[in-house]
Design a protein around this nucleic acid. Structure first.
Lengths: 227, 227
DNA sequence: CTCCTTTTGTTAGAAAAACAACATATTTAA
DNA sequence: TTAAATATGTTGTTTTTCTAACAAAAGGAG
């Protein structure tokens, strides 16, 4: 591997000196691979031995059923990881596929080499595990967040739950979401057209305003609004 | 704290000598507390500093909305943890409440004391963090599993997805689930009565057989069955 | 055993979502 | 710039879920 410029910012390598990263990466048996948009990176059913880290671009964890209905489990951008839960837990096959949301570059790290001390890299061992713990905890929080949204019974409530969360993250009633309409529908596990219709109703009711991926929440009294 | 009999089996203390646990528990600032069925253990909005470990009984993570609709995010039995993602990530308030599913006893462990080495317990430090990583990874897998179930569009598919998962776990087409009907409906985020009706239809269609919490799956060709 | 409580099953009517088909808008590429 | 491709919005119809109300069954306490 030649270029290590993106490594120091990776959460997995947090607190590790820049000069040490090259040898660490080598010791971990890490390698890079590039993918074009839509390309399959990991396939549902795979036994995951490696953690994937997004260096450039973004990936999506998707779950297609027999009828072609797609659910987006999640989306991971630069610096983010995928497959970490399954490789760390070491107990299950991947229940979803991972595909490139756009052109992207992935760093694959062998999980076992992270926990197994080796002569040249054992000084980093503890730090890696601590970083990994933090990353897993954050993923955990994100998954819980998504469950909170999609556990709502109606499309309207799923939308409002998600949008309220985004507004809180942005610290503002005006924000841009990282999804297109179809992707948002997939993420919230609802029909795109029905969701579009619901967005229109919310707009007509004066609850929000939106253009493409940009949203503005206008009212807080959602419970009081009539459908 | 007097009785340490339940501690050695805890995943968090895996690989730690039984004789060392008493001092470790003391060093971690751990303490126990008992709760009666239905009692609130952690409240949505709380800033979680401690990890909860279920010693006896079980807890449920629940999310009630303004109208009293309840979603069960998850259920944790003996040896299981709750709040770990949020305390480890250290970044969010708890977005759900935790309550006793029955009479139970909880061990609370301060997260910071786990990662901060202290004179008397630093020998266990690494092991604790490694155990914690594994636990977080498993929680991760479970959350992903639940998302897979509830991301299905119809009650029927949610049910079949869940039941197929349980059958796989049990390694048999016959198995007992840890939920009552109401709890299962809450877990799958659907209406109890509608779910009951759907179960009846599945039974009439010869796809499954059930009595209370015991299920038997009879066919694999779910996609082919007519509604 | 019997009464009482809780859980589960059933149904009809109301509400919502999915589906399908098309209109409109936006972006991309030639 | 224009044409083509993609994304978003709209609407009627069909299907499914929710709601509410009640019936039936199971479990517990006295």
């Amino acid at each position: 591997m030649k270029n290590f410029s993106l490594m120091p910012q990776l959460p997995l390598f947090a607190g590790i000196e820049e000069k040490d990263i090259a040898s660490l990466v080598k010791c971990l048996g890490a390698y890079r691979k590039s993918y074009a948009k839509g390309q399959l990176i990991l396939c549902a059913g795979d036994w995951v031995q490696e953690i994937g880290i997004v260096l450039r671009g973004a990936i999506q964890q998707v779950n297609d059923d027999a009828f072609g209905n797609r659910s987006i489990i999640g989306r991971v951008g630069p610096g983010g990881m995928f497959g970490e839960g399954f490789s760390c837990a070491g107990e299950e096959r991947l229940p979803f596929s991972v595909e490139a949301a756009g052109d992207c570059e992935i760093l694959f790290v062998n999980y076992r080499r992270m926990t197994t001390t080796c002569p040249s890299a054992c000084v980093f061992h503890n730090r890696l595990v601590e970083n990994m713990m933090l990353i897993l905890a954050r993923t955990n929080v994100q998954l819980t967040e998504k469950i909170r949204h999609i556990s709502k019974r109606s499309t309207r409530d799923k939308l409002l739950s998600y949008l309220a969360g985004e507004a809180q993250k942005a610290g503002s009633n005006e924000f841009t979401i990282p999804f297109s309409r179809q992707e948002l529908a997939d993420y919230l596990c609802v029909e795109r057209s029905a969701m579009s219709a619901e967005i229109s109703r919310l707009r007509q009711a004066g609850i929000l305003d939106t253009r493409r991926s940009h949203f503005k929440l206008l009212a807080e009294h959602h419970e009081l609004d009539v459908h």
